[in-house]
């Protein structure tokens, strides 16, 4: 579904990604872990071209997407993204946040989008907040709305960029629960996170990134219980303390 070949990204003189090769299959829940500055967020942002790769190739469903001729907006409609800081649209009600893109991009009629939004808000447990504004919600609620907003476009892939890092500890659980049920439903997911519990429990595969490359990749059990790479061992021993 996603194939990444020799992906490189530099910001000025700084090389953030130094050649990533990865293949992600349909239905996989790939959890990307690693120290800060390892390039994991940049990797994720390259997948939907919020960052333009400096070098290398990214294929989605066999189509090369980092090509000037490709319609980026069409590609992005296949991929939902959830951000660390939610990025809800503060001037719109919750329901409008969710229906804006499907209606504007003519994917659904107003009525269809509304019904879909109510259904999705129900799934994330916020149907009663449809007419509230984002400023009236807690962090955890905002992030659940952000997930519903991304799902409204009926994406094939969901990207999560540290979705729980900006939350108060007591709100992390409610967001992870939504992500878990999403994973169970068979959604292809790429999740950058520091939640090792989530990686272990929900991930079908874990990528450990450091210094702009994937140092180690494998089933959660292999990575967490028997890491081969010295850096992985060091990182895990410091975070799992």
């Amino acid at each position: 579904m996603i194939t990444v070949k020799n992906l490189k990204k530099t910001f000025g003189d700084l090389e953030v990604l130094s050649g990533i090769n990865e293949h992600i299959n349909k239905g996989e829940v790939v959890v990307v872990i690693g120290p800060s500055g390892s390039g994991k967020s940049t990797f994720l942002r390259c997948l939907n071209l919020l960052e333009t790769p400096t070098d290398g190739e990214i294929f989605i469903d066999g189509e090369k997407i980092n090509d000037p001729k490709v319609d980026v907006n069409r590609i992005r409609q296949k991929m939902g993204m959830v951000f660390q800081h939610f990025n809800l649209f503060p001037h719109l009600t919750i329901i409008k946040n969710v229906t804006l893109a499907p209606v504007l991009l003519k994917k659904m009629t107003k009525e269809q989008a509304h019904d879909k939004a109510i259904e999705l808000l129900g799934k994330v447990g916020l149907a009663d907040k449809a007419d509230a504004y984002p400023s009236q919600l807690s962090g955890g609620q905002k992030q659940r709305v952000a997930i519903a907003r991304a799902l409204a476009m009926e994406p094939e892939i969901m990207l999560f960029d540290e979705p729980t890092s900006a939350l108060d500890p007591e709100m992390v659980g409610e967001v992870l629960d939504v992500m878990k049920s999403l994973a169970k439903s068979g959604m292809t997911m790429v999740v950058v996170t520091h939640e090792m519990g989530f990686a272990k429990e929900v991930g079908t595969r874990v990528l450990f990134m450091d210094q702009g490359v994937v140092m180690e990749s494998g089933k959660p059990g292999e990575i967490f219980d028997d890491p081969k790479n010295e850096r992985t061992q060091k990182f895990l021993s410091s975070v799992l303390k």
Partner: peptide, 12 residues
């Protein structure tokens, strides 16, 4: 982040 959120949904 507002622009990124909009673009990530597929808006031009």
């Amino acid at each position: 982040g507002q622009t990124e959120a909009g673009r990530s949904l597929g808006l031009n």
